[in-house]
Design a protein around this nucleic acid. Structure first.
Lengths: 235, 235
DNA sequence: CGGGCGAAGATTGTATAAAGTTTCGCCTGT
DNA sequence: ACAGGCGAAACTTTATACAATCTTCGCCCG
């Protein structure tokens, strides 16, 4: 055997040690186990994952580039705390990009993809029935990522990954307390439109879905934002 | 003197040592001093910039995230070699995002910004008169970045930075030999539309500008692409 | 004479140690 | 009692050393 050279696919995040750290921290942040503003000490994380600070640092830098971690010089890394202005920018970008993504997803539709979408919807419904808010938020993001993968556009996929990560943080920060699990039905509707290869409907449903998510947020002026952080930290 | 603590502004890329490396390598790549596929040895770069491998590695990882450098495990870092498919994706993304960006730029128009735009056009014209192709490509990218900064949307700005970097690489790889300096007039037209606060015209001109750039490229099927690389390397 | 095996060299990945900076507590002086 | 400054601890940053991996070149065998 000549060599098991990984053919050409530079597996974006697979079995690397740094990827495991990155994904672990990402999951912790997106599932709200780590609150915005929390300090992410290098020793601390290294201890948890049994890695040296070199690897932890690499992972944190990647997360900083994704926008869910802020690195302050000589201070350390902290979980990002998106402002309402950030939130509006993120959702505006999603409203711009995601309708185009579903367009391409319709072009790329296939039985295999439809199966995966259907399976994902089942997972979402199950998590919602369990009342597992953490899993629901994560799966909701995964749905959008799945559609982006389906579109086959690596650029859009990369951008959307960033936007989804930030969105999850934003939703967990600014969601109104009373909002129920938002959007599983919407996701089903989008899948239905994709199955029917109806671009018009798919775009429209994606757009209204994103609007509803944003409308369910409580985005006040940045000044008052500080108060909310105080609340969070005080709790 | 107490301390020269940089007040609070986390200058995104200013006086850091790693930023200097990143910008130096970026400039070298975008100005075609480093050809696609060129290996970027860590020791080599470290020698040039008088930095240790730790800093070089950090810079290369950032460049990899920006998409203009590929890092292969245990092999090293190489200047990215976008495929024609990559090129199409990049320009599709630009056609999607940039019209929206000019929209916001029109909203944010001010005398100070108009001055900067005007000054930039002058620089572009000067470089074109000198026949300085390297400077022309760089300045052409800078124009789009300037408009994005003007829009005030940090998300779009971040995305566009990546797209511009990749675009420069693509243009230098796939440009038809005969194409003249493309688009300085277009840029002037876009600025004129911005000055008149005419969103419709600004969007339209930006879109056609991007289309013309892409039309001036020679994007053949990926199979033949290998041949062209051989040509480049043989030269 | 061509092809495959193997050891030496080089390069990257990882860990550890030294250096600089910030932060926080404590102490002193008013 | 309180404000201000000194000092130590903790952390990040940077550099260096070690280990693992890949590439290359030479040699042997078919």
């Amino acid at each position: 055997m000549v060599a098991k050279t990984r053919p050409k696919s530079d597996a974006p995040d697979a079995s690397d040690r740094v990827s495991r750290i990155r994904e672990g921290v990402t999951a912790a942040i997106l599932e709200h186990r780590l609150l915005p503003g929390t300090k992410l000490g290098e020793d601390e994380i290294g201890e948890i994952y049994g890695a040296s600070r070199t690897l932890v640092r690499t992972a944190l830098q990647q997360l900083a580039h994704e926008g869910i971690v802020n690195i302050e010089k000589n201070r350390g890394a902290f979980v990002a705390r998106p402002t309402p202005a950030d939130a509006r920018e993120v959702f505006e970008a999603r409203r711009l990009i995601e309708p185009t993504i579903v367009d391409h997803a319709v072009d790329a539709v296939s039985p295999a993809w439809l199966d995966r979408l259907q399976q994902h919807l089942a997972e979402e419904r199950e998590a919602e029935l369990r009342g597992d808010a953490r899993a629901s938020v994560r799966l909701s993001g995964d749905f959008h990522r799945l559609v982006a993968e389906m579109s086959g556009h690596s650029i859009y996929l990369g951008f959307l990954k960033e936007l989804i990560a930030r969105s999850s943080l934003i939703i967990l920060l600014y969601r109104r307390h009373d909002t129920p699990a938002c959007g599983t039905d919407h996701h089903a509707g989008i899948v239905a439109a994709i199955r029917k290869r109806d671009k018009q409907a798919a775009r429209a449903q994606m757009l209204s879905h994103l609007r509803e998510i944003e409308d369910e947020l409580f985005l006040k002026d940045p000044a008052a934002d500080e108060l909310r952080l105080a609340d969070v930290l005080g709790a």
